[in-house]
Design a protein around this nucleic acid. Sequence first.
DNA 1: TTGTACGCGTTATCAC
DNA 2: GTGATAACGCGTACAA
Lengths: 337, 337
Amino acid sequence: MADIGDLAGVSVSTVSRALNGSAAIPESTRKRIIEIAKAHNYVLDERARNFRLQRSQMIALVFPYLGDSHRMISDPFYMEILGAVTDALDDYDYDVIVSRVPAMDDAWCENYVVKQRVDGLIIIDRSVQDGSIARLKNLNARFIVWGPPMPNQDIITVGCDSIAGARTAVEHMLNLGRTRIGFIGGHPGMVETHQRFIGYQQGLAAANIAFKPELVAYTDFTQQQGVQMTKQLLELTPDLDGLFVCSDFMSIGIMEYLRASGRTVPDDVSVVGYDDIQLAAYCSPRLTTVRQNIYDGGRQIIRKLLDLIAAGETTSTMLQPELIIRDSCGASAQPAG
Amino acid sequence: MADIGDLAGVSVSTVSRALNGSAAIPESTRKRIIEIAKAHNYVLDERARNFRLQRSQMIALVFPYLGDSHRMISDPFYMEILGAVTDALDDYDYDVIVSRVPAMDDAWCENYVVKQRVDGLIIIDRSVQDGSIARLKNLNARFIVWGPPMPNQDIITVGCDSIAGARTAVEHMLNLGRTRIGFIGGHPGMVETHQRFIGYQQGLAAANIAFKPELVAYTDFTQQQGVQMTKQLLELTPDLDGLFVCSDFMSIGIMEYLRASGRTVPDDVSVVGYDDIQLAAYCSPRLTTVRQNIYDGGRQIIRKLLDLIAAGETTSTMLQPELIIRDSCGASAQPAG
DNA sequence: TTGTACGCGTTATCAC
DNA sequence: GTGATAACGCGTACAA
């Protein structure tokens, strides 16, 4: 930069101001300086600049995993969130770094926040008593959580109403005449699983169906555990006729298993998933599921996070989930209405 | 850091050395300094450190798109590569930033390399005459390309033999008795599409089937264009009985279209895809496809890139593609052998 | 309007 | 073994 200054016969500060469009530099001077910089293909060193400005122009997309259950980051649901976020970030001068961290160990917060590696964070799938959130707040970090808002936590969230989503799914199966409906969640410590369980109970209660604990199982969101828990449920309740599963990905594995074990979907067992990942429309039978509008959510979460970084404040948004009725629930075999 | 030095009654250099485990510091002094640092919960500022060390501890995962055809980064194939790379990076102290850039405009190279925002890059899907590769080499950047090696380019690659993969797929359909086999590629400028086209031609030639240009179509890798080109192929060749498609994602959309237009897969048209994304095993009919072992590729590419950054050199690897025979090709209806 | 001087947090270098 | 100092590349008060 000093060289450019010498070449232009000005000081470094003038070069700096010219390159950053300061109003205090006459057009003629600026043009000349830019010319010279270009001629010697000199570009500002972003890192030094960001360092000086105490910022990084980066945001982190954080996927916590719970305990020993590493829900793979390659899970299609995660992938779609990432796709939505990177697509949404296309128009801004920020980069996104993808990170997977243990949910119960909040040491990573220091890593990203105190060390200023990122200007903001997006947290996916927080757990109910996750210390990270409190830690991040303490650290005065800018972050937004993907998920439904929690009553007693004053944090910014963008996500779907999981209680309503689950309830809708269960009510749909009840309307189709199913009465022995199982619940397959993720880890019980995860907020979203917890809320969907509440929605499941509400749906049953509204229809005066007694809640049975032996119809409930939790998993680590892998297809393997999904299948295993389904097997377990079927042993306790062989005449199970409905299944609400907290992830499309698991649902698909489970449908595979049900078929292999001699039951038909949806005739014997009605299956409703959650997320509406792309796979859901192409598996067989096509999966009825509760859609989270991931793409729209990604756009909103980016806009809000940048607001938060720039202005220091923004608002939460609650997206409405939508029941997408396809073939796995058995609705198409029923008379309309 | 100076404060810690004052508190410990030593200079900043001593603090630095102690915290970085320099051998020149006696254990007692180091312990004391670390104690004090912890007591005042002081941590090294990674950014300042990296700045001083002229490195970033970050790598970029670059997805170029060609011309006006923005193949969405949310394409499942991309997502799976990303998943593999982030999973593989879990054990190292690097972060990955995800980036999508226009293939024909190599300005982004400056952005990432000259500005030192990353220590290394992984490039996906380069185009044949892509200036970026040359530019990156000129810039002396550390990078590895995902894809098959190119004869005249001296660059490090990790990827599958696309020629062999395509040839295997076509030969498989020929063995099943199909003779009017269409080719649906990505953009003709993409290396992988180009090589798969060569493999397609080789397969036909080996079976003495005349190559017909009207059986070849190119797309932007979206399902929409895949369907559109299929329609076009069918108009020119209504008795088309086989289709080799350069992407599983497109294949699935195309199968959907074929069914909707009154043709059965595989009876009327045999379909073979490429990639073996997770979707391929779950769509209906289950897709026969050429597998690229993405997960393994991701691990290898990370290890090699870190080698490249650390040691300044590494080697290319060619993975062997594998034909995964499922239902969409019609093999299961044929007698074995 | 332009230039000077300093600060950002760390490490390398060379004294001692 | 330890300390002082320069340097990394830039932004910005403040002075001129």
